[in-house]
């Protein structure tokens, strides 16, 4: 089994080298005529005002939050699905109940209005 993962490991290295190679070559041989103006932050030619930091909506966090919870719950369901053939009825019902509880969280977020993009 580790053989398969050796393959994946080599793939990670090669997949990193593949896009890195043209970038490095480009960096070495590409044209470089940079001026301070060129390296400024691109804001349609305007001078940059203030910090890059801007106040973000809490909405972004809520979506990430719901995503995180769904993500972790799904992790439990994958082994359950793989073992489905050997499960008794109780096991199947346990999984369905699990998904139902997952749906409850979504329902709460929906009722709370947390899913609206405003």
């Amino acid at each position: 089994m580790l053989d398969n993962w050796l393959f994946i490991g080599i793939f990670v290295l090669v997949a990193g080298v593949f896009p890195a190679m043209p970038i490095i070559m480009f960096h070495l041989f590409g044209p470089k005529r940079s001026t301070p103006q060129k390296l400024e932050t691109y804001e349609c030619g305007m001078e940059t005002v203030g910090q890059t930091w801007v106040q973000f909506k809490v909405q972004y966090y809520i979506y990430a939050l719901v995503f995180l919870v769904f993500d972790v719950e799904l992790i439990f369901l994958y082994p359950w699905a793989v073992a489905f053939d050997t499960l008794p009825l109780l096991g199947v019902v346990a999984g369905v109940l699990f998904i139902f509880l997952l749906a409850d969280g979504l329902w709460y977020a929906w009722q709370k209005g947390a899913l609206e993009w405003s």
């Binding site: 793939f11 997949a15 593949f18 896009p19 480009f26 960096h27 590409g30 470089k32 390296l39 400024e40």
Partner: peptide
């Protein structure tokens, strides 16, 4: 290839250069 490679002066150099590689790696894998 003939376009100029600019890195903004205010950029975080390492993360700025790794990001495009990571974008390809994540699909290629």
């Amino acid at each position: 290839l003939t376009k100029e490679d600019t890195t903004p002066a205010a950029a975080d150099k390492v993360a700025y250069n790794i990001a495009p590689i990571l974008a390809v790696v994540s699909v290629l894998l």
